[in-house]
Nucleic acid binder design. Structure first.
Length: 264
DNA sequence: ATAATATGGTGAT
DNA sequence: TCACCCTATTATC
């Protein structure tokens, strides 16, 4: 499920599976029939990710995919799988089949469309050459709370509700402090953790934010199979650091989780 | 077994 | 402001 780490992970998987090969493309569901027909039999030349947006390049044609909340890929090697009547796009070659369902966006764009899209996105912490100063310029002059700014894809691309909560917790920063009141060193802390945590997530294909020193003995054994977090979805649970109950409140239409004691 | 919820954004109203 | 996308997982009965 998709924050920036998922999209980068998918870009890597589709690069390894399809780039350089001729692919079959079809839309069993029918809502992307024209697009699939335009791609069928062509060579995938590159994959890329910016924030939560995935791009599959076929020379000048670029498939732009946004998974939204429900969207998902099922990518299998050496194994037949049946598309469902909700499968928006199937891409396949001799070895792999990838089925896409329920995306918010699946469309073909050109280089100009891609530029227009990425122009309205902030820097992606997963890009080695990301310009974090662009994010800082927006944050330091904004009156909006930092908890809202981190969810704004035009400020930083790729952070979602889980990373927002976890990054602010690790920084010990209140989600309610206006961007303009965030000290520069606090921004650096946020950015560095965004890079570090998104890289872990992109590598493993799932979010892991909790340091081993903050896990219970049992969690250290099983955390390969289970999702752990400091504050995300931990409402009422004791904080891993101070033992105070974790708080919850809506912000920007999403549930915000934080430790009122550690993030005063 | 059934209902609620969700790691998100778009586009109509 | 809200319906939509329409799956997977978790919570509740």
């Amino acid at each position: 499920m998709p924050e920036g780490h998922t999209i980068r992970h998918l870009a890597t998987l589709h690069n390894n599976a399809f780039v350089g090969t001729t692919v079959l493309a079809e839309s069993p569901q029918g809502r992307f029939s024209d697009g699939a027909a335009a791609l069928n039999g062509r060579t995938m030349t590159k994959t890329a990710a910016h924030g939560k947006h995935l791009f599959l390049h076929f020379d000048e044609d670029i498939v732009h995919i946004h998974l939204g909340l429900y969207g998902w890929f099922k990518l299998r090697k050496n194994k037949e799988q049946k598309p469902t009547d909700a499968t928006r796009l199937r891409i396949a070659n001799d070895l792999y089949i990838s089925d896409l369902s329920a995306p918010t966006k699946c469309e073909i764009i050109d280089a100009a469309g891609l530029a227009k899209l990425t122009d309205r996105l902030g820097p992606d912490p997963l890009h080695p050459d990301a310009d974090k100063e662009k994010a800082w310029e927006k944050i330091k002059k904004s009156t909006k709370p930092i908890g809202a700014l981190l969810m704004d894809q035009s400020v930083i691309a790729g952070i979602g509700n889980v990373y927002r909560a976890e990054i602010l917790f690790l920084a010990g920063l209140s989600p309610f402090i206006p961007g303009k009141n965030v000290p520069r060193e606090m921004f650096d802390h946020i950015w560095n953790d965004a890079v570090r945590l998104l890289e872990i997530g992109a590598r493993d294909g799932r979010i892991m934010t909790v340091a081993e020193e903050h896990m219970t003995g049992e969690e250290i054994v099983i955390h390969g199979q289970t999702q752990l977090s400091y504050v995300y979805k931990q409402t009422g649970q004791p904080c891993r650091i101070c033992d105070q109950p974790v708080s919850q409140k809506d912000m920007v239409g999403r549930k915000l989780y934080w430790c009122a004691a550690c993030q005063a």
